[in-house]
């Protein structure tokens, strides 16, 4: 173990608890990391703002709430205190955007790549929490990883589960993801998710593809947490992943056991990394 273990903070709404669940469930071992959690369930996110390199509550009550669940009772979150800030869920929901990108690519070939980039940019920039991520990244202190809100797997109808979305192929989904990835790229910080991820897992399952809803979502957070925690930790560790988890992780599922190969990332550049893995794992189930 390093004398100065990497300092990682998991920031998010209820999604952030999934990593904690994965940790307490023994799905990965956080030793070797200085791991913190800073977050709160949904509505309190409306009372946060970005200011001077930190995410800062707008009022004392909110600061109290966030401090309550943090190991060091932090009342605000400065990027400079960490090597990595992981946005877990954090109200960054790209479900509709992904559906629209798939529809655009599938049924509207005349819709240009430029317009799809614009759609991705506008959607992300409309999300306050994504603005927090951009602000923190601009400090050039911590590496910022963003794992969007996982895709729902049940109860989806229009405008998500349109025929064109249901008919989308792995290639279609890979292309759609690239428009999100490009948002990172345009900032000069591209995280290239493994092709295996994109092809086989991203945006692949559930009502988004028109099939029967394969699972409820109760077990998903833990799995997401496993994936993201491992990915974040691994990417933080250096040029190659040194996973916190074992090389093969067994997903806990009532109906099916599935081995998930460890996602080996390549050398990751700093700043914003829009991690697709949470969503990818959501899609991978079943």
């Amino acid at each position: 173990m390093s004398a100065n273990p990497p300092k990682i903070v998991i920031f998010g709404d209820s999604h952030y608890a999934c990593i904690r669940m994965a940790q307490t469930g023994g799905l990965f071992d956080p030793s070797g990391l200085d791991l913190e959690y800073w977050g709160h369930v949904g509505r309190r996110f409306n009372f946060l703002e970005y200011r001077d390199g930190a995410i800062v509550p707008k009022d004392e009550f909110t600061a109290d709430r966030f401090a309550k669940f943090n190991e060091r009772n932090r009342r605000f979150l400065p990027a400079a205190d960490f090597d990595m800030v992981v946005f877990m869920g954090a109200r960054i929901d790209v479900t509709l955007l992904m559906a629209q990108l798939l529809m655009a690519g599938h049924h509207l070939p005349s819709v240009s790549r430029g317009l799809r980039h614009r759609m991705a940019r506008d959607r992300l920039h409309a999300l306050p929490a994504y603005g927090f991520a951009r602000g923190l990244a601009a400090t050039k202190t911590a590496r910022i990883v963003v794992a969007p809100v996982s895709f729902p797997t049940e109860g989806l109808g229009r405008p998500y589960a349109t025929p064109s979305v249901q008919a989308s192929s792995g290639d279609d989904r890979a292309v759609a993801w690239e428009f999100l990835a490009a948002r990172r790229g345009r900032r000069g910080h591209v995280h290239s998710a493994g092709r295996r991820h994109r092809d086989r897992r991203a945006f692949h399952r559930g009502a988004l593809c028109g099939g029967p809803a394969p699972r409820d979502q109760r077990l998903l957070p833990q799995e997401c947490g496993l994936w993201c925690g491992r990915d974040a930790a691994g990417s933080q560790a250096g040029a190659r992943v040194r996973s916190l988890a074992v090389g093969r992780a067994r997903l806990q599922d009532d109906r099916r056991k599935e081995d998930v190969m460890l996602h080996l990332t390549q050398s990751l550049p700093p700043q914003i990394l829009l991690g697709s893995d949470a969503v990818a794992l959501a899609a991978a189930r079943g």
Binding site: P109, S110, S112, R113, G114, L115, R118
Partner: peptide, 18 residues
């Protein structure tokens, strides 16, 4: 097309739609 098209092929496909 602000910023232009990605490729000539995309440009021509778009023009074809028009």
């Amino acid at each position: 097309e602000p910023g232009g098209f990605h490729s000539p092929e995309e440009l021509h496909a778009s023009r074809g739609a028009t």
